[in-house]
């Protein structure tokens, strides 16, 4: 589904990603872990098409297509979804306000008919239950005055509504208490299928107790320095990141 080859990216002449290689197949959950400043969020942003980042080298293919050539909306139309680490506040725009248009633009670009209001309402009601989010929150200005947990839950709600092929969760666990964490994880798990994939970007192992990854990658200094299974996450939780740093720094690049 997703193939990243030697991806290099920088911001303001500061190289953050220094050659990332990874492959995600349909049905898989990948976790990307790493210490602060290792490039985790940059990778998520580059995949979603954030324009501040300059891609200096490498390729990213999504279902065989060159992803880096596409605008953020074209990536969404192909089925990529980024759950933001810091969801923006937009005064005067409610979630339901833009989500129907977003969904119908995705549908139209995939040769499907737009969903009418009745079906859309039914669709979002189902998804609201899934992430235990309240109607009143969805008709308020987007994220304005929302608590940290409400913002993250709204991200997962939107993911549920749009049903992407590849969801990238950028530190969705940060700022969540344990109850909210369970709700968010539960939502993600229920949406999981053989046809879609999830990349979970996180600093802590905590979320991975609930969203169980097939693969864990450790990002450090802009490179994936270690890959493994969920046991690697437990090891990181127990030992911290220092041994990774030492191992990396003692090995010639």
């Amino acid at each position: 589904m997703l193939k990243i080859q030697d991806l290099k990216a920088s911001i303001e002449d500061n190289q953050i990603l220094k050659g990332i290689n990874m492959e995600v197949k349909a049905g898989e959950v990948h976790a990307i872990m790493g210490p602060n400043g290792s490039g985790k969020s940059t990778l998520a942003s580059v995949l979603a098409g954030r324009e501040e980042f300059e891609v200096d080298g490498g390729q990213v293919y999504f279902e065989g297509e060159d992803l880096l050539e596409l605008s953020p909306e074209e990536r969404a139309w192909k089925g990529i979804f980024l759950a933001f680490q810091y969801p923006v506040e937009i005064p005067g725009v409610s979630t339901t306000n833009f989500l129907k248009s977003a969904m119908n633009q995705i549908r139209e670009n995939n040769g499907m008919k737009p969903m009418d209001s009745v079906h859309f309402l039914k669709h979002i009601k189902e998804k609201m239950k899934l992430v235990e989010i309240d109607q009143s929150l969805l008709s308020r200005s987007l994220n304005e005055g929302f608590s940290g947990g409400e913002k993250k839950r709204n991200e997962i709600f939107q993911m549920a509504v749009l049903e992407p092929k590849l969801a990238i969760l950028d530190e969705t666990d940060s700022g969540l208490d344990i109850d909210a964490l369970k709700i968010v994880a539960n939502g993600v798990n229920k949406l999981k299928s053989e046809d879609n994939a999830v990349i979970v970007v996180t600093h802590y192992q905590r979320l991975l107790n609930y969203i169980v990854p097939d693969y864990v990658h450790v990002l450090y200094e802009g490179r994936i320095v270690k890959s493994g299974t969920k046991e690697l996450a437990h090891e990181l939780e127990a030992k911290g990141y220092d041994w990774i740093k030492e191992e990396f720094n003692s090995t010639p690049a």
Partner: peptide
């Protein structure tokens, strides 16, 4: 940032701008 958010959800650049100006 608002533009990127809306576009990453699947709104075209034009409709994202229209939505923000409308608001």
């Amino acid at each position: 940032e608002q533009m990127f958010y809306l576009r990453s959800r699947g709104l075209s650049e034009e409709s994202a701008a229209a939505l923000l100006l409308h608001a």
